[in-house]
Design a protein around this nucleic acid. Structure first.
Length: 181
DNA sequence: TGCACGATCTCG
DNA sequence: GAGATCGTGCAT
C-alpha cells in the first residue's frame, strides 16, 4: 500500500471526507510497533462561511494550519480533555478540514484521539512525510451513510443541517448500540 | 485580565 | 443528568 498523495488532500473537504472512508490510518509507536486502522466515520468542515467550521472565526493561531494546502494534521483540545484529529484539505487560503470520528471499533472523535494518543505536538504534522502518523490508500468505500454533523447546534439552520457526516456501511453507530430509554 | 463555552465521554 | 478540565475567542 502507498500513502495518499497531495492531490488527494487538495480536494475539497466534503469529497475527501467521503473518500477517506475505508482508507488506512497508520500510527507508529515509540517502541517501534505500528497500528493500522480503517477509517469508518468522518465529518467535513468547509471554509470560513461554514459557521460550524473553526475557521469561521477567521485566521487565528488555532486555525492557521487550515489555511495551508491539504495534507496536514489539525488537532485541538475540546472540553479540556480530548484531542480531536482532523485532516486539512483543499488549497492554500481555503480553510477546510475533515474530522476523523471513527476508526475500526473506535467510535467517537474523542475516543479516536485517545486511542491514537494525539496531543498538541501533532498540530501541523505533515501526513505526506511524517514517520508517526499517515494515511494509506485503499479502494473507495462501497457505500456509506450521511447524517448531519454532531455537536454544532450553534451553527445556525443552514449549516447545522448539512449532511456532511459520513459513515461507512457495516459499522453500527454507537447511538444505536447503546440505545437508552 | 477575566469569563463563558466547546466538532466529548463516562458514570450514576 | 452532571462533572471532568482547559485553551480559545471575545468582552471588559
Amino acid at each position: 500500500m502507498s500513502r495518499l498523495t497531495i492531490d488527494f488532500y487538495k480536494q475539497d473537504a466534503v469529497t475527501v471526507a467521503q473518500k477517506l472512508l475505508g482508507k488506512i490510518l497508520v500510527r507508529t509507536w515509540d517502541d517501534g510497533t505500528l497500528s493500522q486502522y480503517r477509517i469508518t466515520e468522518t465529518e467535513a468542515y468547509l471554509g470560513e462561511e461554514d459557521l460550524a467550521c473553526h475557521a469561521s472565526k477567521g485566521r487565528t493561531k488555532r486555525t492557521d494550519i487550515m489555511y495551508s494546502d491539504g495534507g496536514y494534521v489539525y488537532v485541538y483540545l475540546i472540553y479540556g480533555m480530548y484531542w480531536m484529529l482532523n485532516v486539512v484539505t483543499g488549497t492554500e487560503n481555503h480553510p477546510q478540514a475533515v474530522l476523523i470520528r471513527g476508526i475500526d471499533r473506535i467510535v467517537g472523535s474523542g475516543k479516536v484521539g485517545r486511542e491514537l494518543k494525539m496531543d498538541k505536538s501533532f498540530y501541523s504534522e505533515n501526513l505526506l512525510d511524517s514517520n508517526r502518523i499517515w494515511i494509506e490508500d485503499a479502494p473507495d468505500a462501497y457505500s456509506f451513510k450521511t447524517a448531519p454533523r454532531v455537536g454544532i447546534d450553534y451553527a445556525g439552520e443552514e449549516w447545522k443541517n448539512k449532511p456532511w457526516r459520513f459513515i461507512l456501511d457495516n459499522f453500527q453507530l454507537k447511538e444505536s448500540i447503546h440505545k437508552k430509554e
